[in-house]
């Protein structure tokens, strides 16, 4: 059995202590603790549905060592939506624009979009496509996902958010 490690970290704004295995990835650690909005699609960093913010940057949680998150800060789609205006607006735009089909890639997409927009991402479809190019979607053809992120970027540009 791998060593068990207690880590203290902030998840979705709340300080928590988790017991994780030495070799465990952050994805499993989060899901084992009922952060179900972080999905598992491949577990080798190739699909992006497990994307979370780690210290403010979008990362694939399946390629992050859970133990190494001790003292760091994690935000997931659900937590971001409940706490930040930007993500809540992105989520609403996904609903309005028909960006959600099966929804399995959606939490990761919303987190990747949050990263893009909070770092000054512009309403530029090519740049948006680049920003979400680590997140696979098999249902939508990406068009309406780009629509939603573009819409929020436009709102930001026009000072509406």
């Amino acid at each position: 059995m791998s060593e068990k490690i207690n880590i203290k970290l902030k998840i979705n704004g709340v300080f928590v202590t988790l017991e994780v295995l030495a070799h465990q990835n952050l994805l499993r650690a989060l899901r084992d603790n009922y952060y179900w909005d972080v999905k598992c699609g491949c577990e080798v960093g190739e699909c992006g549905t497990c994307t979370v913010l780690l210290d403010g940057q979008a990362v694939k949680s399946c390629t992050v060592l859970a133990a190494a998150c001790d003292g760091h800060e994690i935000w997931t789609d659900k937590g971001l939506g409940l706490s930040t205006k930007l993500t809540a607006r992105i989520q609403d735009a996904f609903v309005e624009c028909g960006s959600v089909q099966c929804g399995f890639c959606t939490p990761g997409m919303v987190v990747a979009a949050t990263d893009y927009l909070k770092n000054g991402g512009k309403p530029d479809r090519t740049a948006i496509r680049e920003a979400i190019s680590g997140n696979l979607c098999r249902c939508t053809g990406y068009v309406k996902i780009v629509d939603a992120i573009y819409k929020v970027a436009k709102d930001i540009e026009e000072g509406l958010l």
């Binding site: 939506g81 989520q91 609903v95 028909g98 959600v100 929804g103 959606t106 919303v110």
Partner: peptide, 11 residues
């Protein structure tokens, strides 16, 4: 908007 879209978007 689909009846289930908001739940999916919000995780």
């Amino acid at each position: 908007p689909r009846h289930d879209a908001a739940a999916k978007a919000k995780g």
